[in-house]
């Protein structure tokens, strides 16, 4: 009796915290299906008509394309840079790794506003126009951190005897990297890429400072809310952003879990 009461209280508290965290999100997601153009609770009728309307909106479709391109390119670049950084730093002394990791993680550790302003001043000083290129470069900085830390964590758990064994059997250092190290890092790289993609896809602050005339999906939402226009479409776009962001995160976690089980 006493035990079940305590259980009940625990469940209650946990649900309250979850509700506090997730209820606002849930409301936006539900409103995406509201047939009305003004959001008033309770919802009178449900409809998918705003999904169709949003899809028909050229501006939204353009923004979606920009977001996908930026996230995709930044993730690809970051997967190479982050993996190389981790592999290169793995052999160094633990002190050197600490210092290196500190500077590498700054783009994520610093508030987005600082990173954004810094990028903005940097490109302005070099007279580089703000385009898709600057947006991708800016996103690559924080995506690299994600890949780096994912790969580094995996590398730490790979016994050095594996590459020694490969070289013992005649493999050059390059061959032992491509045939042993890289395949064993594959899972860590891919799960890192999924997380990086999600992070880039819904990034607002750094994008604000580096996008120029380009509009990503989060930037479009931001603009629409500020102007108080297209509110039903905003709900639909949020719904899509949540879906596109959550999917890679879930996949990435599943992958990381299965990789850690293998060893």
């Amino acid at each position: 009796m006493n035990g079940s009461m305590r259980n009940l209280a625990l469940w209650g508290a946990a649900s309250a915290v979850l509700a506090f965290l997730l209820l606002p999100l849930l409301i936006v997601l539900v409103f995406a299906f509201d047939a009305s153009s003004v959001q008033i609770w309770p919802i009178h009728s449900f409809s998918l008509k705003w999904f169709a309307a949003t899809w028909a909106d050229e501006e939204v479709r353009g923004a979606l394309l920009v977001s996908l391109e930026v996230a995709g390119l930044a993730t690809l670049l970051a997967s190479v840079l982050g993996t190389l950084a981790a592999v290169g730093m793995n052999g160094l002394s633990s002190r050197a790794v600490q210092v290196g990791a500190f500077f590498l993680t700054l783009p994520i550790a610093l508030p987005g506003v600082l990173t954004g302003i810094a990028m903005n001043s940097f490109f302005t000083a070099l007279e580089i126009p703000f385009t898709m290129v600057t947006l991708v470069i800016a996103h690559t900085t924080f995506c690299t951190v994600i890949i780096y830390s994912n790969v580094m964590a995996r590398l730490r758990r790979l016994p050095p005897s594996l590459t020694e064994a490969a070289q013992d059997m005649g493999a050059t250092p390059l061959r032992s990297f491509t045939s042993i190290t890289l395949p064993l890092l594959g899972g860590a790289i891919v799960s890192g890429m999924l997380l990086a993609f999600a992070l880039s896809f819904d990034e607002v602050i750094v994008s604000t400072f580096t996008a120029g005339s380009e509009t990503t999906l989060p930037l479009w939402i931001f603009g629409a809310i500020r102007l108080g226009q297209h509110m039903p479409e905003v709900n639909v776009v949020v719904f899509v952003v949540v879906a596109v962001t959550l999917l890679p995160i879930i996949l990435g976690q599943k992958l990381a879990a299965s990789v850690s089980r293998e060893r």
């Binding site: 016994p159 013992d168 005649g170 064993l184």
Partner: peptide, 17 residues
């Protein structure tokens, strides 16, 4: 090591997982 006619059995076996 890759230029020596020697093979090693490692303490942790070092099998490729």
């Amino acid at each position: 090591p890759y230029r020596r006619d020697v093979n090693t059995m490692f303490q942790d076996y070092a099998l490729f997982p």
